[in-house]
C-alpha cells in the first residue's frame, strides 16, 4: 500500500509506534521510515543512543524507546522529514506533537492552525505551542491536539493571511 499511495498502513505504523506504557510516560520519538535507503543522519544526530547506530547505511532506524528523551534533535536531522515526537503527557486531554516544517510562512506561537493527517486532510485544529527555527531550515513546530488525534495528525496548514477575510 505504502508503495502505491505514499501512505503507511496501520501495520507499517505498528512497527514504529512505542507501546502504551512508554507513550504514557511522555515525549517519545516516532520514526515513520519504512524503506531501506542509504541514510543514517538520525542515528548520528541522537545524543542518547536511543536511535541505535547503524551497522549498514541502508538499515532502517531502530529505536530504544526507553533511552529516548523526546528531545527532537533527530526531527530536523532527518532528510526524509519522517520523524515526529509525541508527548501524550502534555495535559489531561491534549497531546503535544513536534513535527518538521519547511514551509513559509511559519506559524505563530499561540495561534491556531489546521491539523492535517498523513493524507493532508484537515482533521482538527491545533494550537501552536512552540516554533523552533533550526539552522538547517527544517524547523520544528510543536502543536497541541486532542489526545485521540496524536497518532493521526502529522502536518499543519497555516492560514494564509492574504486569503483571510
Amino acid at each position: 500500500m505504502l508503495e502505491k499511495t505514499g501512505l503507511p498502513t496501520d501495520d507499517d505504523l505498528k512497527k514504529v509506534i512505542p507501546d502504551k506504557e512508554r507513550l504514557a510516560k511522555g515525549a517519545v520519538v516516532i520514526i515513520e521510515c519504512f524503506q531501506k535507503i542509504p541514510c543514517d543522519p538520525c542515528a548520528i544526530s541522537c545524543q542518547f543512543g536511543a536511535i541505535k547506530p547503524f551497522k549498514d547505511i541502508n538499515d532502517l532506524p531502530q529505536v530504544d524507546f526507553n533511552k529516548c528523551t523526546g528531545c527532537g534533535i533527530c526531527i530536523s536531522a532527518c532528510p526524509g522529514l519522517a520523524i515526529f515526537v509525541i508527548d501524550n503527557n502534555y495535559s489531561e486531554n491534549k497531546a503535544l506533537i513536534k513535527l518538521p516544517y519547511e514551509m513559509l510562512p511559519l506559524p505563530e506561537k499561540g495561534k491556531e492552525v489546521y491539523a492535517l493527517d498523513r493524507a493532508g486532510k484537515i482533521v482538527s485544529k491545533a494550537k501552536v505551542v512552540r516554533v523552533q527555527k533550526i539552522k538547517n531550515k527544517t524547523n520544528i513546530i510543536s502543536i497541541s491536539v486532542h489526545k485521540n488525534m496524536a497518532m493521526k495528525v502529522r502536518s499543519i496548514k497555516v492560514e494564509d493571511k492574504k486569503n483571510e477575510g
Binding site: 499511495t5 505514499g6 519504512f34 526524509g80 519522517a82 492535517l116 498523513r118 493524507a119 493532508g120 502529522r154
Partner: peptide, 11 residues
Amino acid sequence: LVHASKIRRLG
C-alpha cells in the same frame, strides 16, 4: 517513500 509521504501530508 519518505519523499512521497511528505508530499501526501501536504494534500
